[in-house]
Computed example of a mutant assay.
Amino acid sequence: MNNIKEKVIEANYFRHACKEFDSNKKISNEDFDFILETARLSPSSFGFEPWKFLVLQNSDMREKIKPVCWGAQKQLPTSSHFVIILARKNKDMIYSSEYIVNFMKEVQQLPEDVIKLKSQFYKDFQENDFKLTQSNRAMFDWACKQTYIPLTNMMVSAAQIGIDSCPIEGFDREKVDQILSDEGIINKDEFSVSCMVSFGYRKEEPRPKTRQCMDKIVKWI
């Protein structure tokens, strides 16, 4: 058990926001499938998985989005794998949507009585607890927050097998959405970009990790 703990902490010290990768080193299919599997297995609110992962390996497409991704200028041309994480919009995430109903039936394989009960809980949660139905943006932001769970799982799992990564929010969302829509990759009524993440092998060693001490960020009550 102690050995497992040590390896997890080592991976977290190893992980850093890698700004530039060694473009000559590529991640194997087996290793990247492993990383994607940790994303697939990630938890989500009510288990409704409000995400989709675009693995952007086409160099022409990387060049097309580069002008509107100021935070990925070095990562786009040098990373072995580049992932755009999409979040579902109000059309799919509202409690009464076809996506939600079908998800409970086909993916979660719930019986009808449980679907009815869960649907009511989900409706109450959206309308009263988090007030997500007040605006389309509130619903989308809620879905985006959930995408950061698989984002983190991918980065940590990558670090555990010696692969570097960099989470990216530095982009013009509307312009990236439009490019992806124009290319027929996404339907803007259903999806929008939440965040991006690049993977590969570091070109240079990073500076030592700096963080606040534990007593500055944790309060026991």
Results as ranks from 00 to 15, higher is better:
Glu205Cys: 05
Val197Gln: 03
Arg207Asp: 07
Ile185Phe: 03
Gln134Pro: 01
Gln126Glu: 14
Phe199Tyr: 02
Gln126Val: 12
Cys144Ser: 08
Glu183Cys: 11
Asn136Ile: 13
Pro208Gln: 06
Gln120Ile: 14
Arg137Val: 12
Lys175Met: 10
Phe199Trp: 02
Ile115Trp: 05
Ser192Asp: 13
Glu183Val: 04
Asp189Glu: 15
Val197Gly: 03
Gly200Val: 07
Glu169Thr: 13
Gln146Met: 13
Leu117Tyr: 12
Phe171Arg: 00
Phe191Tyr: 15
Gln146Gly: 09
Gly184Cys: 08
Lys175Tyr: 06
Leu132Tyr: 02
Cys166Ser: 11
Lys116Phe: 08
Gly184Asp: 08
Tyr201Cys: 11
Lys116Ser: 13
Ile179Ser: 02
Asp172Ile: 14
Asp177Ile: 04
Glu127Val: 12
Gln120His: 13
Val156Ile: 15
Glu205Met: 10
Glu204Thr: 11
Asp141Cys: 09
Ser135Ala: 13
Ile163Tyr: 04
Leu151Tyr: 02
Glu190Pro: 00
Tyr201Ser: 08
Tyr201Trp: 10
Ser165Gln: 09
Ala143Asn: 11
Met154Arg: 01
Arg137Leu: 13
Lys123Trp: 09
Asn136Glu: 15
Asp129Leu: 11
Lys116Gly: 06
Met154Ile: 11
Gln134Asn: 08
Ser192Met: 08
Asp141Thr: 09
Ile186Asp: 00
Asn187Gln: 14
Arg211Leu: 08
Arg137Trp: 06
Ile186Lys: 00
Asn187Ser: 15
Lys188Cys: 14
Arg211Ala: 09
Asp129Asn: 08
Phe140Asp: 00
Met154Trp: 04
Leu180Gln: 00
Ala158Arg: 01
Glu204Asp: 11
Ser157Glu: 04
Val193Cys: 10
Gln146Ser: 12
Leu180His: 00
Pro208Gly: 05
Cys195Ser: 15
Ile161Val: 12
Phe121Trp: 12
Cys144Met: 09
Ser181Ile: 05
Asp182Ile: 06
Leu117Pro: 00
Gln178Phe: 05
Phe199Val: 04
Met139Trp: 04
Lys118Tyr: 13
Leu180Cys: 01
Ile185Asn: 01
Ala143Gly: 09
Lys118Ala: 14
Gln146His: 10
Ile163Ser: 04
Pro208Ala: 10
Phe171Gln: 00
Lys175Ser: 10
Lys123Gly: 05
Leu117Glu: 14
Ile168Arg: 02
Pro150Ser: 08
Ile186Glu: 00
Val197Trp: 04
Asp172Arg: 11
Phe171Lys: 00
Ile115Tyr: 06
Gln120Ala: 15
Arg173Ile: 14
Lys118Ile: 13
Asp172Cys: 11
Gly184Leu: 07
Ile168Asn: 02
Lys118Glu: 15
Cys144Tyr: 00
Gly162Ser: 10
Lys118Phe: 12
Asp189Lys: 12
Glu169Asp: 14
Glu190Tyr: 13
Phe125His: 14
Thr210Val: 08
Gln178Ile: 03
Thr133Asp: 07
Val156Asp: 08
Ser157Leu: 05
Met196His: 06
Ser157His: 03
Lys118Met: 15
Ala159Thr: 04
Leu180Arg: 00
Phe130Lys: 15
Ile179Glu: 02
Ile168Val: 12
Asp182Gln: 14
Leu132Ile: 03
Ser119Pro: 03
Asn153Glu: 07
Thr133Pro: 00
Thr152Ile: 06
Ser135Gln: 10
Met196Val: 07
Ser181Asp: 09
Met139Lys: 05
Asp164Tyr: 03
Ser192Pro: 03
Gln178Arg: 07
Glu190Trp: 05
Met155Phe: 07
Ser119Asn: 14
Arg202Ile: 09
Ser194Phe: 06
